[in-house]
Design a protein around this nucleic acid. Structure first.
Lengths: 258, 258
DNA sequence: CGTTCCCTTGATAAGGTTCAACCACGGTGG
DNA sequence: CCACCGTGGTTGAACCTTATCAAGGGAACG
């Protein structure tokens, strides 16, 4: 945070100064919007779901917006022929389902990947919160971030081979957990079956399995029984070189609560 | 699985009424936000770009938000090894680049697919507009729609074969143009080269070419020299069955201007 | 102690890529 | 007017990544 400010303030032209002022103002708004939004979630009772359980009951009274408190979940869509696509993976502190604020019938569903705690806000309440422009801006930013992640995944599925896709997934989760200070070492728990990984990356279980074996044999990363151990971060990153980088995603703020 | 289907179709009545009321209130806001947003665009001078030209100069002073006036454009990302991914296709009336309101450095770029007219709004101005909650909500809705489309594409690239992917693309463009009353018949101009289609769908030029031939031989759709003629809408739709449907996307409003 | 879920591995086939060549078309310049 | 060139489209053959089918194994759980 601090260093980004300093190197930007070295830029001479008035244009840039103006922009910095605005960006600074916006990021303050974002921060305060973030706090309000999370505070609203924390006022709702915490709910729990077991592995495989849905987080939002289909056809229930009203769509909901979620904030994950602990554990992992995923958003998925099931094709007519039963094949499944996992569109997004949700880690603690993630806020999901924001689309429901404006879109009536969600076509995708949330499922717990392991035992999990979360908060839920009704769409109407959330819409109410959106009247605060700072909350609206933060919600907007969260949606933009989700989109950014979707783009990355699209690029990966469209143009990367199985090895790179899996590396990307593991690195992304790693980076996400690290930026939230949820882990320190390159070792973490990833409660996804190989089938779920396959559905997320547009592959088959069998191929995921073989590719994981290859990654293990090459001593890049071990992924055994939901435990991921990254052995060679450098070489792993080299496999997915050339993708857009997180760089200016926010986070790393307000570690205090949640 | 089976029960999910049933309770989707016959949801409890009172809830539905309530939801409609809420959605109705929100949709008024959306409508008025949409008008304000488009009005702001229309106040900026119209700009033109030639085929292959970038819509936003990279490294320019400030990121911009775009509204397409006429013609097609696409948003793309270029991998380190030169391979390209086309993440989104933009048709007239589309608003793109909204992420720039909150994200500093866009990693993707916009390119004109043919000669094209558009309006651009600076990120700062756009951020200013967002202080109106109705505009913020509409911007939010636009972003959600873009995300919805990204999801569909992800599903397609991850789980559908080449034939279904191409069918999906052609049908999507068709539906989009139709809902905006830009065409009436199942025939339209699609200014994309086969290579661009390939980059959009995660395929190679060669394979796109062969698949288009097959679609033509099966008398489903003819795609020749940037002109698409859908011969059998029914059978074409059958190929992409099981994907989320547009259903409650807005549009079809305020045809008056732009 | 069987059942279930998930992982693992082999054999085979399909869908897609790569390489390479050729064609058609619309400039552009001599 | 025609030769020349570049871009985009078309096609064949070989190859490779990934899917499919099938079967077996191990751990958790009632």
């Amino acid at each position: 945070m601090g260093e980004a400010m300093t190197d930007r303030s070295l830029a001479p032209p008035t244009d840039l100064i103006e922009r910095q002022r605005l960006a600074g103002g916006a990021s303050e708004d974002l921060l305060s919007g973030d706090r309000s939004l999370r505070a609203a979630f924390l006022e709702t009772p915490i709910r729990y779901a077991d592995r495989g359980g849905g987080l939002v009951v289909r056809g229930a009274c009203e769509p909901e917006i979620l904030m994950i408190r602990s554990g992992f979940a995923y958003r998925s869509y099931v094709l007519a022929d039963g094949r499944r696509v996992i569109l997004d993976i949700l880690a603690p502190r993630d806020i999901a389902g924001l689309d429901n604020i404006v879109a009536a019938h969600p076509s995708d569903e949330f499922t717990a990947a392991c035992r999990l705690g979360y908060h839920a806000l009704g769409a109407a309440e959330a819409r109410q919160l959106m009247t605060d422009p700072r909350v609206a801006l933060q919600a907007f930013a969260l949606l933009a971030e989700a989109r950014w992640r979707a783009n990355r995944l699209m690029i990966a599925i469209g143009r990367l081979d199985a090895q790179a896709r899996i590396s990307l997934l593991l690195l992304d989760i790693y980076d996400r957990l690290r930026r939230r200070d949820l882990i320190g070492r390159p070792t973490f728990n990833l409660p996804l079956t190989q089938e779920q990984i396959a559905d997320h990356l547009g592959l088959t279980v069998v191929h995921v399995n073989r590719t994981l074996r290859r990654l293990r044999e090459e001593r890049l990363v071990i992924c055994d029984r939901q435990v991921v151990i990254i052995l060679d971060l450098e070489r792993l990153r080299a496999l997915v070189q050339g993708l857009p980088v997180a760089a200016d995603l926010p986070e790393a703020v307000s570690q205090t609560d949640c």
